[in-house]
Nucleic acid binder design. Structure first.
Lengths: 205, 205
DNA sequence: TGTACATCAGTGAACGCGCGTTCACTGATGTAC
DNA sequence: TGTACATCAGTGAACGCGCGTTCACTGATGTAC
């Protein structure tokens, strides 16, 4: 990154980083390859040494995002010797943290509209992301009597949807800014009520 | 719409309709004014008779969306003499229906990143949309003992986030298509569990 | 250590293209008489 | 009913611009000897 001359050093990653900033600022479809090149300090033509086009650049950003995401989530859930319940709540917080700290990645992953199946690596990483969420749901749902237990995939889809909704509506700039609650507070309380509904928390508080 | 010559008849609405289709296809930032004009059967310059630019066109689409949305939601919740609980579940279904039937409007409203405050009419309509959801939450939360009742705004934010998350992740084309559940099923069961957590449904099923 | 050479990442010029925006215009519509 | 005229919605030509993509090139780096 420091010494720069004719050769960039690590342009591939430089372009991904540039794209991430631009995605964050203008959305996944709101920037051009030339902008990304300029931001990386390079001629538009140089991009083609590393990516076939826009799509592939965004896919790489999404790929890196999924890797960070599944790492963080796995660590939040499985990292310590907490109870499954605490670990699960930790997981929700990690989700929100990720969306906060890596907005460009988050948008590339979930809002860019790219198909996960154009790239096997990406498909694998995305699969791992949803698996890791589902593992958390499976572990926790073991605490529910079997006959009252919803399918773990459904459980995890609910939580995922709630997290995503909170991120999109209340942790971003514009639209849902009208609520007086913090996203963290909203997510934590929402998950709490949901878990109570599953019998995983006492009915009263 | 039928007789067409030099004058379009209702170009303003024609442009909005064109924009809605394009938003649905390519996202709120993925289309150009010229495309919308072409789709409406008109020269790009004609757009400027009706809108100052892209932003204003999208704002109009969002405005119309909010009006349809708040109508549908209000009707679903308040329309009949059902119990508050049934009415509330009806409301969730109406949300999903709206997102299904009016994807362009939905995206213009919640995914376009336009600021609601650039246009007073839009701000009002958006306000009404969230109010109508909140009214439903208020009515239902009256059934909870006051000391265990979360603020209605929080309640409604939870439900809204869940609905939005289901729409974005599981009722759209690509990313979350991997789940085996229907969005309706997912939303209904999620709301059910959540309401049980609030003590609005019996703990057992 | 020094030299010659292969490699290949990035350049810069070039292209055709569609965009946003402006402008004087034109022709359809409505209305006053 | 007919005519003259005002209005104004949409035209089409024009502009400058930045984009994506290609191409032969150049110059930095690494390595074989």
């Amino acid at each position: 990154m420091s010494k720069r001359g004719y050769h960039h050093g690590n342009l591939r990653q430089g372009l991904v980083d540039a794209a991430l900033v631009l995605i964050e600022q203008k959305g996944p479809t709101g920037f051009t390859l030339s902008e990304a090149a300029k931001r990386a300090g390079v001629t538009p033509a140089a991009v083609y040494r590393h990516f076939a086009g826009r799509e592939e650049l965004i896919a790489e950003a999404a790929l890196q995002g999924h890797r960070i995401f599944s790492d963080l989530i796995a660590r939040a859930f499985g990292g310590s010797q907490k109870s499954d319940l605490l670990a699960f709540e930790e997981t929700g917080r990690a989700y929100l943290d990720f969306a906060r700290k890596y907005p460009g990645h988050y948008m590339a992953m979930f809002e860019s509209g790219i198909s996960v199946n154009t790239n096997p690596d990406l498909a694998l990483a995305a699969r791992k992301s949803s698996d890791v969420l589902e593992q958390a749901a499976i572990a926790l749902s073991k605490h529910i009597p079997e006959d009252k237990r919803p399918p773990a995939a459904m459980f995890s889809a609910h939580i995922w949807a709630l997290c995503h909704g909170v991120v999109e509506l209340f942790a971003r700039g514009t639209p849902g800014a009208k609520t007086q609650f913090q996203p963290e507070e909203l997510l934590e309380s929402g998950i709490g009520i949901y878990l109570r509904g599953l019998g995983l928390l006492p009915p009263d508080q």
